[in-house]
Design a protein around this nucleic acid. Structure first.
Length: 428
RNA sequence: GGAGAGGUGGCAGAGUGGUUGAAUGCACCGGUCUUGAAAACCGGCAUGCCCUUGCGGGCAUCGUGGGUUCAAAUCCCACCCUCUCCGCCA
């Protein structure tokens, strides 16, 4: 949510900022609503003040044993007028809230201009796409035929957009997750957390998935709970309705969790393989910080995610998302894209964002500023470090040999009992 | 699932219809004292919004939403959550 003060006082700047990301703000309608709100609020409050004054006088007279009937007559029709005014105000307020809750975050000034994916800016590349002496297979070709990657099996159990993994590949997937968790906790200073995978609507509202993206979520109607689309939701909400002691900042959490996305199965895009699934696993990095530190920490957090790719020796590049490609809540985002030889393409494997106070305002997540002794909104950041399913694909495709075997990256061997090669059906 | 108790400021905890936005303690901030610190003492200390150049004034908020009343933290209804006991259970 944006700062209401900012919207009232610098509407043109807000309009311009939102326009950068392709969002058209109807300033005339907003101003009209705001004007109505102001008038109704003043009228309502004046009536309330009158009621309060009368009530107080009645109390005093009653205590003194005086006749209060004249005063009671005086306020006889105040109640109805107040009620009407208050109801009208509530209605306008609700309309205003709906507009405000639907506004995306303002892009940070450093965010490049642009309308979509094609306008994102390449910041740097690490490593080179490997050259193979044979046509590299994609992960589906490598996994199918064996039980390692079984799409048909998952379809029988759950439906399309799920996958079933077995044997060495299931273990490699787990190894990736453990390797990431260990690296982030032991070397990057994160605290590992384990969280609920079902969350209430308030939590999803806090991080910005509700109300606008309700359709993307899996919803359990009976209990009114949602399956998390990312660990960002439960982890960031740790700070909801809390005031964090300044000495504890920044809070750094790392969390492995499954992620559930309903829209992932939309027809058309990425229908092959396990690029886009209803369920996948991810190791998520979340930081809660003082506002002054948040941009420096975004660089740091992005570096933490990059270090996983480097240790796995997977070639990747860092893209600075343009204003038009930013997510709803983000002020600035770096995407990490890993090279997939089977697709001959760079594919997103991590997205690292600074949300500034956008989420914190929705969550009322605050810290006590020692300089002012007042509670102030935190800044929140997060990034994948990394998406496990896609990391698995990247390892499969980048580490394949001519026979279709998959070499286990050195960094993962301690987690694989020293295993060096995984045999696939393709290698038979 | 059944029975009971309870949700008040950063925390603890008073407050059962009328100058209560809320006693008191702790924590925190400023000061006095002290070589310094502690202790003691003095003062300050919720959040959001509206009006105002400013001083200042007003409104709302005691789990959430309704209701009763001139007046609600306090009474009534519904819901949510927490705790204790019983049942069930990985």
């Amino acid at each position: 949510m944006l700062d209401q003060q900012l919207i009232r006082r610098q509407l043109q700047a807000v309009e311009a900022g939102l326009a950068r990301r392709g969002f058209t703000l109807d300033t005339a309608a907003l101003q009209a609503l705001e004007q109505q709100r102001k008038e109704l609020q003043q009228r309502t409050q004046a009536l309330q003040a009158q009621r309060n004054r009368s009530a107080k006088r009645i109390g005093q007279k009653k205590a003194a044993g005086e006749d209060v009937q004249p005063l009671l007559d005086e306020v006889a029709d105040l109640g109805a007028a107040l009620k009407a005014s208050a109801e009208e105000l509530a209605q306008v307020q609700q309309g205003l809230d709906e507009v405000l809750r639907g506004l995306p975050n303002l892009p940070h000034e450093s965010v490049p201009a642009g309308e979509g994916e094609a306008d994102n800016v390449l910041l740097r590349q690490w490593g080179e796409p490997p050259s193979f002496a044979f046509p590299p297979r994609d992960h589906v070709a490598l996994g199918e035929g064996s039980r390692l990657l079984d799409f048909a099996g998952a379809t029988k159990i759950a439906g399309s957009r799920f996958v079933l993994m077995q044997g060495g590949l299931a273990r490699l997937h787990r190894a990736l997750i453990q390797f990431m968790l260990d690296t982030h906790t032991e070397e990057h200073g994160y605290t590992e957390v384990n969280v609920p995978y079902l969350v209430n609507p308030a939590s999803l509202f806090g991080t910005g998935q509700l109300p606008k993206f309700a359709g993307d979520q899996f919803y359990i109607e009976k209990q009114g709970l949602y399956l998390i689309p990312t660990a960002e939701v439960p982890v960031t909400n740790i700070a909801r309705d809390a005031i964090i002691d300044a000495a504890r900042l920044p809070l750094r959490f790392v969390c492995h969790s499954p992620c559930f996305r309903s829209e992932a199965g939309a027809h058309g895009k990425d229908t092959r393989g396990m690029i886009r699934q209803h369920q996948f696993e991810k190791v998520e990095l979340v930081q809660l910080t003082r506002p002054a530190d948040s941009y420096a920490l975004l660089e740091e957090l992005t570096g933490h995610a990059e270090s996983i790719l480097q240790r796995l020796r997977l070639p990747y590049r860092v893209m600075h998302l343009c204003a038009g490609d930013l997510g709803f809540a983000a002020a600035k985002t770096y995407d990490l894209e890993v090279w997939l030889p089977g697709q001959q393409a760079w594919r997103e494997i991590s997205s690292c964002s600074n949300f500034e106070a956008f989420q914190a305002r929705r969550m009322q997540a605050r810290w006590r500023n020692p300089d002012t002794a007042k509670p102030e909104l935190l800044h929140t950041l997060n990034g994948s470090g990394l998406a496990a399913g896609r990391a698995l694909i990247a390892v499969m495709e980048n580490y394949q040999d001519e026979r279709g075997r998959i070499q286990v990256p050195e960094a993962l061997r301690p987690y694989m009992g020293g295993l060096e090669w995984i045999e696939t059906a393709a290698s038979d």
